[in-house]
């Protein structure tokens, strides 16, 4: 139990009479790459939105445990920014960068919740603020180098290629120093080369001590990356296990390929 950094139990979300998520359990251990898969409309993104505070869950518990000091926090009903402060950051399925800000500034925004300069500091630009500002720039630059965008620091984010925008989103999320990173379809719309680079990047991020929960449709990517897979369909969890277990699970095959039709 103490091993787990995220424990979701019985998470339910109703929209009116519709159960978008129905009593889903999930847990993530430190250093793991966990994938959440399922057909379109299975409730994966809703699940993410509940975790990150954009939706308030109707029932269930989300417990986040900081691996550094072991403090446990119940995330239900917390504001998104507080959750990010607790150490869980995310990317979005439909890219949500700050389009007219520069690449570097996008990452610098990620540093917001880890820095403290206030309004008077900004006006008087005292040494502490200046130092902090320099740290933000340096650190953001290092992150950009990690995601391979350090040549485009001053480019406006909207001018980046699609794959680069995805990488920038990951970089921005990394800037908040999360121990758990949620990626919502990071490979969507990427070409094979970009996907390959992404796999390398995710492995690298994971090896640097971030745990990862990702939603993805690219089965090749999911199977090669993840340690464990959770499968959702119609808001319910229908399977979980290692890639091999999930691949041969009849319920999963049924969800993806439909009912067996007698030949």
């Amino acid at each position: 139990m103490s091993e787990v950094i995220l424990k979701v139990s019985g998470l339910t979300k109703n929209f009116g009479g519709i159960k978008a998520i129905d009593a889903v359990d999930l847990d993530i251990r430190p250093g793991e790459i966990v994938a959440l898969i399922g057909p379109n409309g299975a409730g994966k993104t809703t699940f993410f939105n509940c975790l990150t505070g954009i939706y308030t869950p109707s029932a269930g518990d989300i417990i986040l445990r900081d691996p550094k000091n072991g403090t446990e926090t119940r995330l239900n009903g917390m504001k998104p920014n507080k959750i990010t402060e607790k150490g869980m950051a995310r990317t979005f399925q439909n890219i949500r960068l700050f389009p007219t800000m520069s690449v570097l500034e996008n990452v610098m925004i990620g540093r917001h919740c880890r820095t403290h300069a206030h309004i008077l500091g900004a006006i008087f630009r005292n040494p502490a603020t200046r130092r902090e500002e320099e740290e933000i720039v340096d650190m953001s630059y290092d992150i950009l180098r990690k995601v391979g965008l350090h040549r485009q620091v001053n480019e406006e984010a909207r001018n980046l290629s699609y794959g680069a925008q995805r990488r920038l989103e990951i970089g921005r999320a990394l800037a908040t120093e999360p121990f758990l990173l949620l990626l919502d379809e990071p490979a969507a719309g990427m070409n094979p080369q970009e996907t390959e680079a992404l796999v390398t990047l995710i492995r690298k991020i994971c090896s640097e001590g971030h745990s990862i929960l990702l939603i993805e449709h690219d089965m090749k990517l999911v199977m090669s990356l993840s340690d464990r897979i959770f499968v959702m369909d119609y808001g319910k969890k229908i399977a979980q296990g290692t890639p091999e277990e999930v691949r041969s699970n009849p319920a999963v095959i049924k969800a993806y390929l439909g009912e067996d039709v007698d030949a």
């Binding site: 954009i54 950051a89 949500r96 389009p99 925004i109 999320a173």
Partner: peptide
């Protein structure tokens, strides 16, 4: 630019 992304980044 984007309120939701802004919150998700801890602002």
């Amino acid at each position: 630019e984007d309120e939701i992304a802004c919150q998700a980044m801890g602002i």
